[in-house]
Design a protein around this nucleic acid. Structure first.
Lengths: 191, 191
DNA sequence: CCCCTTTTAGAGAGCGATCTCTAATAATCG
DNA sequence: CGATTATTAGAGATCGCTCTCTAAAAGGGG
């Protein structure tokens, strides 16, 4: 083949995550990623056709890592248990991956979604559809009287927002957070 | 005195809020604000010493408008009623002021907090202290067994995150949101 | 009506970011 | 060991943004 890579895709994306953690989405520039990874900017352009493709890749890799774990938790049996587990999972994952969790507090818009390549836009839509379908299924399994808006609040919004405050303020997520979130979900969903 | 202003402070800040709504914090540049307000960049620099002071002003004006209404709601009597009202207030205010609400989904960090003038940093700290004290007082009034973390979750995080999802997705905040949020707060706080 | 102050108006220097292009480099395969 | 190929390396053009500076304009007070 040829020369082996020194700064591979994942290393560059790791640098990009660090930058987003320190300076927000606008800190993720091609020049900054290259500097941070110790690579010349040409190496970045060798992997990503342009700056937007890089931003899309950072967002998508992070989101999909989160979604994989979340969907797994929300797909368990029985439904009540799965809902509470999913809510806990959001908190635990964020404690384990604080940089990625802070990044996900932004939206794809902040990472330039409207200027992404089509393939990346499709990938995002596909992942979101998967999560939405899982949660719609969960709502149905929980009973006909549980609407999607309520499930979203209990399982996504509440844990997400608790995490968000601690990430913004730089305080560690308390040990009790999982229990608090589980209690809220149970109360909201009548479990 | 002298010539009356054509582009006053508040008009420029309104333009800045619009830009943040459309393009995020990084869309709020001196050049863009001037363009959007139909003013030359010199007029912006006549009001604000530099770009960071402008960002600070946008953030602080928006935050303080929100906090004024929120603190008023959270200070009512009795405590249980005040807590539920405060949670509802977050949702209502966001529906009435969607641009400002989306802006507040970011943090001061995203608006360059670390490079703000000292006076602005102090103003931010003062406002935050006021809210924190109000909520600590509310927690105490609710009873010795209600800790601050729980009050924050019920009254701030939950409504904020429900709103955040709709703002991100561009969907309107449902009519039922206030009730859902009030129900959650009541359950969490044992009201 | 003229002077004084505030404000508008915009040109232009300096800077950092994106992206292109060319040359050098290093491993693998025959 | 030489040919091939993936990759690094970085110079340089272009662009938009920040900020400064000078000149002009437009009311209000005496």
């Amino acid at each position: 083949m040829g020369r082996p890579p020194r700064h591979d895709r994942d290393r560059l994306l790791d640098a990009a995550v660090d930058l987003a953690f320190e300076a927000g989405p606008s800190g993720v520039t091609v020049a900054a990623v290259a500097r941070s990874a110790g690579a010349p900017s040409g190496s970045v352009y060798h992997r990503f056709p342009n700056a937007m493709a890089l931003l899309a890749a950072v967002w998508l890799r992070t989101l999909e890592r989160f979604q994989d774990d979340f969907v797994a938790a929300a797909s368990g049996e029985p439904a009540g248990r799965a809902a509470v587990d999913a809510a806990r999972q959001v908190v635990s994952w964020s404690r384990t991956n604080p940089r990625e969790a802070l990044l996900l507090q932004y939206g794809p818009r902040d990472f330039g979604q409207s200027e992404w390549p089509d393939a990346d836009r499709d990938r995002l839509a596909h992942g979101n559809r998967r999560v939405r379908d899982t949660l719609a299924g969960l709502a149905a399994r929980l009973g006909p009287r549980t609407d999607l808006e309520r499930v979203l609040l209990a399982v996504v919004d509440v844990p997400r927002s608790l995490v968000a405050r601690h990430l913004r303020e730089g305080t560690p997520i308390p040990e009790s957070a999982e229990d608090l979130v589980a209690e809220t979900a149970a109360a909201l969903l009548g479990i």
